[in-house]
């Protein structure tokens, strides 16, 4: 650790000249259907997070509008397709596209997932769970290092929701991600909703998870909604990112703020995307909770 020096908390919103540092207010995930409205209305948001792959393009209208948005908001890039946990070779084309995007958009944070999505050249384009073994840890540390060296910057790794566990696992997910951060020098993007979903699905205490993550490794927090489904005789929570943040997840967010201090927080909403105002209201709610946490800490 220490090779990469990007700390978002020290960055100012150099693009829009606002008084608040980038990330001091909550941000939202940027979705194409809100592009124009965001440019027209410029809602008060801390920053915007774009899915990297959506802007893998030589040119064209999507990329153009992101450049316009970038003039008014700080931006983070969140990848969903690098398949960093796969045992296939890293896709250098994908990585080059990402490097180009980073060069062109100067994001405050770049993140990927603690998951894999391809094997034998076939891609499932989903965030698939890993077995938490020493073998997988060694592999992930090498892969994250390779990505960071190629991009010449630190990346954040985000915990995913899961619906199964492998019986080969010898480590817990929280010990795995803590060790990954320590050994690779990556930061952690903590998705509080995903922790809650996995905790309910697998029967662990989400506070145990939070308490195992090193305080200084968490550089971003995600909040999102999930659904409760009945599969056979079991209730399974599915991470849809398609509704408002649930009350237990807000409660867990309060706990996370006590442990990790003020961390840039993002509202994610990927399916059944609502009106922009709904997202702005969720971000404002996150801001209120963060302010209250700061007042208690002070």
């Amino acid at each position: 650790m220490g090779t990469y020096s990007l700390n978002p908390r020290a960055l100012s919103a150099h693009a829009h000249g606002g008084a608040a540092p980038a990330g001091s207010q909550a941000g939202i995930g940027l979705r194409a259907r809100h592009h124009r409205e965001i440019l027209q209305r410029r809602p008060p948001l801390g920053w915007l997070e774009a899915h990297s792959e959506n802007y893998f393009a030589q040119g064209g209208p999507q990329r153009d509008i992101l450049l316009q948005i970038r003039e008014h908001y700080a931006l983070s890039l969140h990848g969903v397709g690098l398949s960093i946990g796969s045992t296939d070779p890293l896709d250098r084309t994908h990585l080059c596209e990402l490097a180009r995007l980073i060069r062109d958009f100067d994001p405050m944070l770049v993140s990927e997932h603690l998951s894999w999505s391809s094997a034998g050249g076939r891609f499932l384009n989903d965030l698939l769970p890993l077995p938490y073994t020493e073998e997988a840890l060694t592999h992930l540390v090498a892969r994250v290092r390779e990505v960071q060296e190629t991009l010449t910057r630190q990346i954040l790794i985000e915990n995913v929701s899961s619906y199964l566990q492998f019986n080969a696992s010898t480590l817990t997910e929280w010990d795995f991600i803590a060790a990954l951060a320590q050994e690779s020098g990556c930061g952690v993007l903590l998705d509080v909703n995903n922790i809650y979903v996995s905790a309910m699905n697998h029967g662990f205490d989400p506070h145990t998870y939070l308490n195992a993550i090193p305080r200084d490794s968490v550089q971003e927090i995600h909040l999102a909604g999930h659904t409760l489904n009945r599969v056979g005789s079991r209730e399974i929570r599915i991470d849809t990112h398609g509704s408002q943040v649930s009350e237990p997840v807000w409660a867990l967010y309060r706990t996370a703020l006590r442990r990790f201090g003020h961390v840039p927080t993002l509202i994610e909403w990927d399916t059944d995307i609502p009106a922009l105002d709904v997202l702005v209201a969720e971000a404002a709610k996150a801001d209120l909770i963060a302010e209250a946490a700061r007042a208690v800490a002070a």
Partner: peptide, 9 residues
């Protein structure tokens, strides 16, 4: 024709 890339384009 399964997807051959992490990018769905």
């Amino acid at each position: 024709h399964p997807s051959r890339a992490g990018n769905l384009h």
